Amino acid sequence: MITITEFQKIGVGLSGFGVFFVMFGVLLYFDSVLLAFGNILFLSGLAFIIGFRRTAHFFFQKQKLRGTTFFLGGVALVLLKWPRIGMLVESYGFVVLFKSFFPMAFGFFGTALNIPFLTTMYNKLSGSSSSMV
């Protein structure tokens, strides 16, 4: 069984509130204060969950430097009160940074929840030929 430390519990809470504030900021027509607060909470929660050194190592790997530049540049644009452009840049950076996790997430949700659309998408992304499309 995996043990979860107190820092990781705090990190999950911070990340959850960060995602909530980002979604709430988008719903309120890209409110820059809520988006900035959500970005800061999400990044600090990520650092609490996986550790500060691992977070820095993840973001500053050579093959992920373009995604990191776009993601942190988008955060900076949101902090500089350009929320729409900042969220577009940040979204592109997020996709580039976390593209290796998407097939695993689609597979998990597709098999755990038995959702046909996600299972088909996982099979296509993973290169499996057992898809019945």
Rank of each mutant, 00 (worst) to 15 (best):
L65N: 03
F17W: 12
S91R: 04
V96I: 14
F106N: 00
I10Q: 08
T69F: 14
S15A: 15
T55F: 15
G38F: 10
S100R: 12
L113R: 05
T3D: 12
N123D: 13
F60N: 02
I85Q: 06
S126K: 10
I50Q: 06
V78N: 10
F59D: 09
V12P: 00
V89W: 05
I49K: 01
E90I: 01
L72E: 04
A105Y: 09
V33F: 15
Q8A: 14
A56R: 12
F52G: 03
T120W: 03
K62N: 11
F94K: 02
G86E: 07
G25E: 12
F109E: 00
L35C: 09
R66Y: 11
T120L: 09
L43T: 10
N114H: 13
Y92T: 00
F58V: 06
G74F: 02
L34C: 06
F71M: 13
A47D: 00
L79D: 02
E90W: 05
S44D: 01
L79F: 14
L41K: 05
T111Y: 07
M1H: 14
K9H: 08
I4H: 06
L41Q: 04
K64G: 12
A112S: 13
G45E: 00
A56Q: 05
F42E: 06
R66D: 12
T120N: 12
G73F: 07
P83K: 05
S129Q: 13
K9P: 01
T120K: 10
V95P: 02
F17H: 02
V75M: 14
Y92H: 02
S100C: 00
G107K: 08
Y92W: 10
V78T: 13
L118H: 00
T68P: 08
F17N: 05
F70N: 01
G16W: 03
S130Y: 02
G25R: 06
I2Y: 12
F60G: 06
F52I: 11
N123R: 14
V19G: 04
F117D: 02
L35F: 03
F71Q: 03
L113G: 03
S131C: 08
L77E: 04
L41T: 00
I50S: 01
F52Q: 03
K81M: 09
V95S: 03
L14N: 02
L118M: 15
K81W: 12
L80A: 14
A112Q: 11
L43E: 05
L118I: 00
F48G: 00
Y122Q: 01
G18Q: 09
M121W: 14
T5K: 06
M87Y: 07
M132D: 12
T3Y: 13
E90Q: 14
L118G: 00
G38C: 08
S128C: 07
I85L: 15
N39A: 13
V133L: 11
A47S: 11
F101C: 04
V75H: 09
G51S: 08
I50H: 05
S129C: 04
I40Q: 01
G86V: 10
V12Q: 07
E90M: 15
E90H: 12
A76P: 01
Y29Q: 05
M132T: 14
F109L: 15
F94R: 04
A36T: 14
F71S: 09
F58K: 11
V33E: 09
L46D: 05
L27D: 04
A76T: 11
L34R: 03
I40W: 00
N123A: 14
F101V: 06
G67K: 07
E90N: 13
